[in-house]
Structures are given as structure tokens and as C-alpha cells.
Design a protein around this nucleic acid. Structure first.
Length: 343
DNA sequence: GAGCCGTGGAA
DNA sequence: TTTCCAAGGCT
């Protein structure tokens, strides 16, 4: 595995040169961003974060709203809130240095079993077993584990832990993830070039592509709502902040009616408008899919009048076009605004 | 333990 | 168009 890694090692923005350890801050930041997120998507965000906040102390000093706006578009926004909270804890309770022990790492917000092991292995070269989706797949195939996920997790973790070498544990962890990402891929695995081909049970049984099996997923329901884009004459748009926790927690949004399953009644939903105005329902829908439901947003647009300005709903603020990129607008809200501007 | 929590790219 | 799912964690 390590010999293969030495030959096929990928250059990634957060990866230290061969034979060197990466800065724990860099390892942590990249691992949080990479949770359920592809390397390609993370790249730009990682560079911008590191440029703007070069140390954990700098990140700790930042206002949470700055962190959320820099995170906008990456998804799973609890990660950004936990990232910030973790930076503050490391700065204040650990003197600006990431702890090296498993228990101390697990106590930090946003760091679970996988991330703690990844930090220990990659940043501190401890023989910790970091089992992510890639490793789950590699192990499930290597041992032809037919039990569907997530039930197979216990067996996979046990098998994976036995393979961790005493030396170069960080390189080994990254090698396994590289293997899963580039060779032992979910679809069309490239078994013929795999360094583990000789010992792979799934390969032997012709099951590689079918493993790991997964429990069937629940069907996603569709929720619908009416979003209100209120424009000022200078192009500014009315925004408000979402509650700190839950879906898109702490992010900015365009005001809207509640998102509910079933048919949308635009007449009733109009009662949720942030201000009385001559609202016009725009043609078309904005569709967006979250982790556990589809969303269909109808968009209403109006131009703010001086009379209406006095009766703005509380908690709403104007945002000019040139300041839009500074706001913590999740992708779904950028879609809504784009749809309103276009129509 | 199972549901909640985003997004974009590939097929 | 739809489906799958990626370097998961929290509750």
C-alpha cells in the first residue's frame, strides 16, 4: 500500500510534501471541509479560508457571520458553525495547539470518530484507523463483506484497524483514501491496476462493483413554498437571517412562506409577505434538493415603495447587489435571486 | 440508532 | 431527468 502511495501520491492543496507532516490546522480545516464533500468542490474554499485565516487563532477571532459567508455554497452549514466553535476552543483551552489524544479531539465540536483518527494519523503520525466512505468501500470489497451498510460498519472498522501499519500511519491513511478515490471507485472500479488485486475477495468473486451493499434509502418528499424577492430601485434586495440551528442554520435568506408538503396555495402564502406591496408571481419554479427533501419554490417579486418601507417585517435588512457576495447566502437562495432578476 | 443536515458532478 | 453519493457529525 505504501509502495503504491509513493508512486501514485496525489498533490492536494492541504497535503504536505512527501516525507513531511502537514500543519495540524491545515489537516483539520481540510478534513472538516471534506466531510461528505468532493475534493474538487473543496479546493477553492480551502484556499480562500487559508489565505484569509492562516492560523487557528485568526479563525477564532473572526466573526461567525464572516465564516458562514465564506462557507456559503459548501453545504452542511453546521460544519461552519462547529469549525468556528472548535477554533475558539483550541485557541482558548488548548493554547492554540490542536490536542493529539483521541479523547481530547473527540471532545471538540465537529470532530467525530473519522476526523479524530485522520488528524491523529496525518498530522501526528499516530497509528489511528481513519475509516471514511472510501475505506469502507475498499474494506468491504477486500473481504467481500455482503452485509449492507450501515450494519456492516462494525465489521469494516475491525478489519480496517488490523491493517494499519505502525510506521507511516499518516501516509497509509491517505493512501487508502486515494485508492478509494481513484482506483477502488464506487462505479467501474479499476481492479486491473489495483495494488490489492491479488488479495481482493470481491474481485475473485466478481462482486467488486456490487459492494458495498447499502440499505435502501427513503424516498424524498417534496416541500413547496412562496419566496418573496423585494427589490429596491437601486437593486438592493430584502434579506433576513435564518434561526441559528437546523436547516441552513445561521444563513441569510429571502423571506418566504413556510416550506410544506402538499399543494402550494399562492393566495394563502401571500399572507407571509414581508411587506404589503404589489407582488407579482413569476413564471417557473426554483427547484432544489436537500439531503432529505425536494424543494419547489414559487417566486414572488415586488418593487419596494416608500409607503411599504415603513412596514418592513422585523429582522429583515437590505442588501445591495455589490454586497451580495459578502452575505451568507446558501445556494438555494442564490437560485431564487437569480430567478427573480432574470424574470 | 435513525433522522437531520447541502451541494455539485457523474452516469 | 433522475439517481447516486463524496475525506461524517450531531442528536
Amino acid at each position: 500500500m505504501l509502495a503504491w502511495y509513493d508512486r501514485h501520491r496525489r498533490t492536494l492543496p492541504w497535503r504536505a510534501p512527501a516525507g513531511r507532516r502537514a500543519d495540524p490546522y491545515v489537516v483539520w480545516l481540510s478534513e472538516i471541509m471534506l466531510q461528505q464533500t468532493t475534493v474538487a468542490t473543496v479546493g477553492g474554499y480551502f484556499r480562500r479560508f487559508l489565505e484569509r485565516w492562516p492560523t487557528v487563532g485568526a479563525l477564532a477571532d473572526a466573526p461567525i457571520d464572516d465564516v458562514l459567508s465564506a462557507w456559503a455554497g459548501l453545504g452542511y452549514y453546521a460544519r461552519a458553525r462547529n469549525l468556528h466553535a472548535c477554533a475558539r476552543t483550541v485557541t482558548e483551552a488548548h493554547d492554540g495547539h490542536f490536542p493529539q489524544g483521541e479523547e481530547d479531539l473527540l471532545a471538540l465540536p465537529g470532530i467525530g470518530a473519522y476526523t479524530a483518527a485522520a488528524i491523529r494519523a496525518i498530522a501526528f503520525d499516530q497509528p489511528a484507523s481513519a475509516v471514511d466512505g472510501n475505506v469502507e468501500r475498499v474494506i468491504a470489497r477486500l473481504y467481500a463483506i455482503e452485509t449492507p451498510l450501515p450494519d456492516a460498519k462494525t465489521e469494516i472498522k475491525t478489519r480496517a484497524a488490523r491493517l494499519v501499519p505502525a510506521e507511516r500511519a499518516g501516509d497509509y491513511a491517505q493512501a487508502m483514501m486515494d485508492l478509494g478515490a481513484t482506483v477502488c471507485t464506487p462505479r467501474s472500479p479499476r481492479c486491473v491496476i489495483c495494488p490489492l488485486m491479488a488479495g481482493c475477495k470481491a474481485r475473485k468473486l466478481g462482486l467488486a462493483e456490487e459492494l458495498p451493499r447499502r440499505a435502501p434509502k427513503r424516498e424524498k418528499p417534496t416541500r413547496r413554498g412562496l419566496a418573496f424577492v423585494l427589490s429596491r430601485k437601486d437593486g438592493a434586495i430584502l434579506l433576513r437571517k435564518r434561526p441559528a440551528k437546523g436547516l441552513l442554520g445561521g444563513m441569510d435568506e429571502v423571506p418566504s412562506s413556510p416550506w410544506r408538503e402538499g399543494k402550494l396555495s399562492p393566495e394563502k402564502a401571500m399572507g407571509d409577505a414581508p411587506v404589503p406591496a404589489r407582488w407579482q408571481i413569476l413564471d417557473g419554479l426554483v427547484r432544489h434538493t436537500f439531503t432529505h427533501f425536494h424543494l419547489e419554490l414559487t417566486v414572488a417579486h415586488a418593487i419596494a415603495t416608500t409607503g411599504g418601507l415603513a412596514r418592513l417585517a422585523p429582522g429583515t435588512t437590505w442588501c445591495t447587489i455589490d454586497r451580495m457576495t459578502e452575505r451568507a447566502l446558501p445556494t438555494v437562495m442564490r437560485k431564487v435571486i437569480a430567478h427573480a432578476v432574470k424574470n
